[in-house]
Simulated scan of single mutants.
Amino acid sequence: MSSSCCSGFLLNESDDYDDDDVAEKSPSGRYLRYNEVLDRGPRNTVYEGFDLVDGMEVTWNKVTVDDSFQSEEHMRRLSTLLKPLKHKNIIKSCSSWVDHQSKTINMISEFFTSGSLRLYSQKHRSVDIIAIKNWARQILQGLCYLHTRDLPIVHGDLTCQNIFVNGNSGQVKIGYIGLPTTMLQTPELDGEEIQYSPVVDIHSFGLCMLELVTSEYPYSYSDGKTQALLAKVKDIQVKDFIEKCIFPVSTMFSAAELLKDPFFEICAFTTCVNDTPDLVSVLEFKISNEKSEFRLRGERVDENSISLTLRIADTCGGQVTKIEFMFNVDADTTLSIAWEMVEQLDLPKEDATLIAVLMDNVIMKMVPCWMPSSVRFSGVKCSYGDPILVF
């Protein structure tokens, strides 16, 4: 990441850019700022930008600061903190500089097309708790990375608005770590000193969880009113986990400890919600273990063929793999195809059993006379039922 104490250049008629939407360019000339506003906060405005060298969209964050933040010493400190931040759940920082004329710090970072987790969750309000756990795990992994550095970093302003999501893969990243608080030593957790502790981020993480499960904005609640919103959480396990994050400070867990919480444990199971007729043309099952969620959608093509689409979501890293294939009822076996997938995709060997179970569930619903493969479940307990999607 590069840093500078130069001002950006507002474009006028003498500039070489014909696009009316281009408002400003960086001191180096590499980055352009468009007029389109992506987000606004109390002290900052985030614009859409463009990297002329890499040909990629970026975010341009303008943060209004007082004189103390505009010093060269602070910018060197900021550059030192952000440049080495490389983690799959932390937004990549590209450049930063101070604009003394407008009293702003400008920060360029990677662009996530699906926007903030707040907007994304508001758009998809019926999201499964498994997806929320996936997001929560990734947020904690990012916080754990920040808090356990040689020079620990406290985000200090963690909200669902400052967390970004890739809608295609389910990956989330923590952003706007532009003005972090560093801890040269661990302070006592009382009085004003608490603002320098990671517990600030853990408490904010708990409020993010509260927002995701209730679809309500918890930060508008005054002190003592959080319990009112927490009372709306009906799932006891979810409620207990959130309480560990927000009450009380003296016993608050670290990000690393929360990642080991039973809240994130996922047993192997197949999910079902609807009664199904003896013969269906399209349906979907899912099965999960502690590492991945497998979803299999089947569509009857003809008497002997079924079109299958398998979606494998990594609940730890957020990566998603999608495979489409045909299954011949007369010639194929679920176990042989499952083993072939495991070998070709370099999946854990134990996944072969889960994939075969999933295929057996789908095919048995679509072909009543189908006899499932002879699978021995060593240590894997599966409950069979109706599919999650039926046509």
Rank of each mutant, 00 (worst) to 15 (best):
P262M: 13
T353A: 15
K234F: 03
L389D: 13
D314G: 07
E48K: 10
S305D: 06
F164Q: 05
T251L: 02
G318W: 00
F263S: 07
P248G: 12
V58Q: 10
V172E: 05
R118P: 00
T64I: 14
V280K: 03
R300S: 14
C5H: 10
S292H: 04
V98L: 02
L259A: 11
I129H: 06
Q101K: 07
F285W: 07
Y145V: 09
Y47H: 15
S197R: 00
L158H: 03
I202H: 03
I355A: 04
D16R: 09
K92G: 09
A256M: 11
P348L: 05
A131M: 07
P248A: 08
A228Q: 06
M56N: 10
T104Y: 06
I312H: 09
I174L: 13
R137N: 05
T159S: 15
S95C: 13
S126P: 00
P277K: 02
L283W: 00
S7H: 05
D240M: 09
Y384I: 07
E48C: 10
R30Y: 01
L258P: 02
K103M: 12
V22K: 02
I129W: 00
T333A: 12
H74M: 11
L212T: 08
S114C: 10
D16L: 07
I91P: 01
R149W: 01
N89A: 10
E324R: 08
L259P: 01
C5Y: 09
F111S: 13
H147L: 08
Q101T: 11
P152Q: 06
W60V: 14
E343N: 04
G178L: 04
D346A: 05
T226F: 01
L335R: 00
K322V: 15
T309A: 11
S93E: 04
R40S: 14
K260E: 15
D223Y: 06
G55T: 03
N44K: 04
G167P: 02
G385K: 01
A356D: 12
K244D: 14
N274T: 14
T181A: 15
T315D: 15
Q171P: 03
T321I: 05
